[in-house]
C-alpha cells in the first residue's frame, strides 16, 4: 500500500503540491486525474523518489521513501516499474535490449533466462516479432507497448503510468488501456495511472483521485466520481471551459 501524507512541493514561488493526502490500495488500479500542468506528474515522481517533497511523507509498505537515500532507496525502487509519458526508451538500444535492461542491470540471471523472460514480456504486449528494432523505428503505440514490457519485465509490485495515452489516437488509446487492464489481471500489480482521458480512464480504474490546486479534492470509485456534485470535478468531466478549474 502507498500512502501520501500532507505532501508539499514548491518550485521557487510556485506551490505545486499543497498538502496531498492519498491512500493507494494494494493490487488495484488507481487513476489520478486533473488538469494538464496541475502537478500530476510531479506527484508521480514523488512516488518513486525522483523528486523529494518539501515536507510530508511518501509511505510505501510502511517505509517513508522521502527519507531514504542510496541503497535503501534503490531497494524500494526495485518494487516499482514506471511507464513514462514519453516512454523514455533508451534510443541507442534495441527493443529487446531495452526490455532486458532491468534484468541485466539488477539481477544475476543468465543471458538465456533473461532472453526467455524478455521474449515472454514482448509477447504479452504484442511485440514479439520486432525485438531487434530501435525505438526510432517504432510507432507511438508500439513505443508504449515496449515501455510497458520494460516496466513489467522484473515483475514489479507497483507500476506507475504517467499519461500512458498522451499523443495516441482513440483506437490506440483504447488498445493501451486494454493492455494495462490485461497486464494488471495477469500480473496483479498495484497500478497508479496519471491521466486526463475522460471518460475512458473510468473503464480501467477501480479508484479515482482528482488533483486540483495541489490537493486531492475527491478520492472514490469511478461511479461516485462520475456522479460527484463537486463543481471542480463536474467541470473537469464535462470539459466546460468556464468554472472552478479555471478558464482555457
Amino acid at each position: 500500500m502507498i500512502q501520501l501524507i500532507d505532501l508539499r512541493k514548491s518550485f521557487e514561488q510556485q506551490q505545486v503540491l499543497r498538502g496531498v493526502n492519498l491512500t493507494i490500495p494494494k493490487g488495484q488500479v488507481t487513476a489520478i486525474i486533473g488538469r494538464s500542468g496541475g502537478g500530476k506528474s510531479v506527484l508521480l515522481k514523488h512516488l518513486i523518489g525522483l523528486m523529494r517533497p518539501d515536507s510530508g511523507q511518501v509511505m510505501v509498505d510502511g517505509t517513508d521513501l522521502a527519507r531514504l537515500r542510496g541503497k535503501a532507496l534503490d531497494l524500494v525502487r526495485e518494487k516499482f516499474g514506471v511507464l513514462f509519458q514519453g516512454c523514455a526508451l533508451f534510443d541507442s538500444l534495441t527493443v529487446f535490449d531495452n526490455v532486458a535492461f532491468p534484468l541485466r542491470e539488477k539481477t544475476r540471471l543468465s543471458e538465456g533466462e533473461i532472453a526467455k523472460r524478455t521474449m515472454q514480456r514482448l509477447e504479452a504486449v504484442g511485440l514479439a516479432d520486432m525485438p531487434h528494432k530501435y525505438p526510432a523505428e517504432l510507432s507511438g503505440g508500439m513505443k508504449k507497448r515496449a515501455a510497458l514490457a520494460r516496466a513489467l519485465v522484473h515483475d514489479p509490485q507497483i507500476i506507475l503510468f504517467d499519461e500512458p495515452t498522451t499523443g495516441l489516437d482513440p483506437i490506440l488509446l483504447h488498445s493501451v488501456h486494454r493492455l494495462i487492464l490485461d497486464a494488471h489481471k495477469r500480473f496483479g500489480f498495484t497500478a497508479v495511472v496519471v491521466s486526463h482521458d475522460i471518460p475512458e480512464i473510468f473503464d480501467i480504474a477501480q479508484t479515482v483521485a482528482m488533483l486540483h490546486n495541489g490537493v486531492i479534492v475527491e478520492h472514490d470509485s469511478p461511479e461516485v466520481i462520475i456522479t460527484s456534485a463537486n463543481p471542480v470535478i463536474r467541470q473537469f468531466i464535462t470539459g466546460a471551459s468556464n468554472g472552478q478549474n479555471g478558464r482555457e
Binding site: 515522481k45 523518489g49 525522483l50 525502487r77 516499482f80 513514462f84 523514455a88 533508451f90 534510443d91 542491470e105
Partner: peptide, 10 residues
Amino acid sequence: EQIDALEAMA
C-alpha cells in the same frame, strides 16, 4: 526522461 528511467530502475 531516460535518466529518470535509469533512476527509477535503481
